[in-house]
Amino acid sequence: MTHRFREAMRLMRTRDPQRREDGFHQLLPHAAEHVDELIEEFEQEQDDHGLRCWLLELIGAARSPAALPTLGAQLNSPDESLRLRAAAGLTELDTPEARTLLWKARANGMIT
């Protein structure tokens, strides 16, 4: 785990909205480099809904096949915010597997 990643996560966990936003934007261009750490953080985070949404958005921005299981699982989330971010991430990934997951989610009415 790099210093950049640790610092960005520290900022994203503060109470200051601007610092949280700064942490997100520090990671955004480097999401692909940290996809495994992002997935781990997402799976461990249970309390902060906003942080979970941002982490899932970063996971999708990574455009990594390693993100497919996490994004696919969130298509079935009862939380619409997570479902929409997962769908956006799978759309960005644009692999046959991602398209299949999106098609099934649409067919089941989980996303529109």
Score class of each variant (00 low, 15 high):
Asp36Tyr: 11
Gly60Met: 07
Arg4Cys: 01
Pro29Tyr: 00
Trp54Ser: 13
Leu93Cys: 01
Arg19Lys: 15
Ala98Pro: 00
Leu82Glu: 00
Ala87Trp: 08
Gly23Arg: 07
Thr100Ser: 13
Phe5Asn: 02
Asp16Arg: 15
Ile59Trp: 03
Ala31Pro: 00
Met12Tyr: 11
Ala98Tyr: 06
Asp36Leu: 15
Gly72Leu: 06
Glu7Asn: 02
Asp36Glu: 14
Gly109Glu: 13
Leu11Glu: 08
Asn108Glu: 15
Asp79Val: 09
Arg83Gln: 07
Ala88Asn: 07
Ile111Phe: 00
Arg6His: 14
Leu102Val: 01
Leu58Ile: 14
Asn76Lys: 15
Ala98Ser: 04
Leu102Ala: 00
Pro29Ile: 00
Thr100Leu: 03
Phe42Leu: 08
Asn76Val: 09
Gly23Met: 02
Arg106Met: 10
Ala61His: 14
Glu80Val: 14
Leu101Glu: 00
Thr100Ala: 12
Asp22Cys: 01
Arg52His: 05
Arg20Gly: 12
Phe42Pro: 02
Ala88Cys: 04
Arg13Tyr: 05
Glu43Phe: 01
Ala98Phe: 06
Met12Val: 04
Thr112Leu: 06
Arg63Ser: 02
Pro69Asp: 05
Glu21Tyr: 13
Asn108His: 09
Gly89Lys: 04
Arg20Asn: 12
Arg19Gln: 14
Ala105Pro: 01
Asp16Met: 12
His30Thr: 02
Ala32Trp: 08
Gln26Thr: 12
Asp16Thr: 12
Arg20Thr: 13
Trp103Val: 15
Ser81Met: 11
Asp36Gly: 13
Pro78Ile: 08
Leu27Pro: 14
Phe42Ser: 02
Gln44Lys: 14
Leu38Asp: 10
Gly23Gln: 06
Glu37Gln: 10
Thr91Arg: 15
Cys53Ser: 10
Ala73Thr: 09
Thr95Gly: 01
Met12Thr: 07
Thr100His: 10
Arg6Asp: 15
Gln46Val: 05
Arg20His: 14
Leu82His: 00
Phe5Val: 01
Gln44His: 11
His30Met: 06
Gln18Leu: 08
Cys53Val: 13
Arg15Leu: 07
Trp103His: 13
Ala61Glu: 11
Glu41Ser: 10
Leu28Tyr: 11
Trp103Asp: 15
Cys53Ala: 05
Pro17Trp: 13
Glu41Phe: 08
Ser77His: 07
Gln74Glu: 13
Ile39Asp: 00
Glu41Asp: 07
Asp22Tyr: 06
Trp103Ser: 15
Leu58Arg: 08
Leu28Asp: 10
Leu51Lys: 05
Gln18Gly: 12
Thr112Trp: 12
Glu97Tyr: 07
Arg85Met: 03
Ala107Ser: 07
Pro69Leu: 03
His34Leu: 01
Arg15Gln: 04
Arg6Ile: 09
Arg13Ser: 04
Leu27Phe: 03
Gly109Tyr: 15
Leu71Gly: 02
Gln26Glu: 12
Ala98Val: 03
Leu51Ile: 09
Ser64Thr: 09
Pro17Val: 07
Thr95Glu: 11
Leu102Trp: 06
Gly89Cys: 04
Gly109Ser: 09
Asp16His: 09
Gln74Arg: 14
Glu33His: 04
Leu90Trp: 11
Met1Thr: 12
Gln44Asn: 12
Met9Phe: 09
Met110Thr: 11
Leu93Gly: 01
